[in-house]
């Protein structure tokens, strides 16, 4: 079956199988920033923006994306700035979870969130198993312009 979507601002018609999950379709079409983590919606690694809101793409039925707008890390110009901050603060070790965290943090910037406590609550669904989060929190604080 075919679905019409807008991915990163571009209108696309995607050919999908009825059983497919959005995560698999996005990867098949070359959006490799969207990575498979736990595959159960728990880790946040596969986060994309669905009509502007963060969702785990591993738990979205691909057919349901028909007529909707999807933004992956590739479609977020602010991603690079945050990625550099993550590197600066030593917040990447294996780096596997970074795309999901970046998508969600850029979303927080759009919401103009400037309080660290609020940011932490909103990012509760993005797991990192390497860093212990300290470096990430420093990078997030810089990126969002958290007031001290």
């Amino acid at each position: 079956m075919k679905i019409k979507v807008i991915i990163n601002g571009e209108k696309k018609v995607l050919d999908i199988e009825p059983h497919e999950i959005l995560l698999d379709v996005l990867r098949r079409y070359g959006y490799y920033s969207v990575r498979r983590g736990c595959d159960t919606g728990m880790c946040g690694i596969c986060t994309v923006l669905f009509d502007g809101k963060p969702v785990p793409s591993c738990s979205v039925f691909a057919a349901r994306a028909d007529g909707h707008e999807i933004t992956t890390l590739e479609g977020l110009p602010e991603a690079k700035e945050f990625a550099e901050l993550l590197a600066e603060e030593g917040a990447d070790q294996c780096g596997y979870c970074s795309p999901g965290l970046i998508v969600n943090t850029v979303y927080l910037k759009k919401l103009k969130i400037k309080k660290m406590d609020e940011a932490k609550i909103k990012l509760i669904g993005n797991l990192c198993r390497c860093t212990g989060y300290e470096g990430q929190h420093r990078a997030i604080a810089k990126f969002l312009g958290v007031e001290k």
Binding site: G44, P54, V55, K122, I124, G125
Partner: peptide, 9 residues
Amino acid sequence: IGSPMIRNR
């Protein structure tokens, strides 16, 4: 319940 991402769906 869940995480912010799950609550969106």
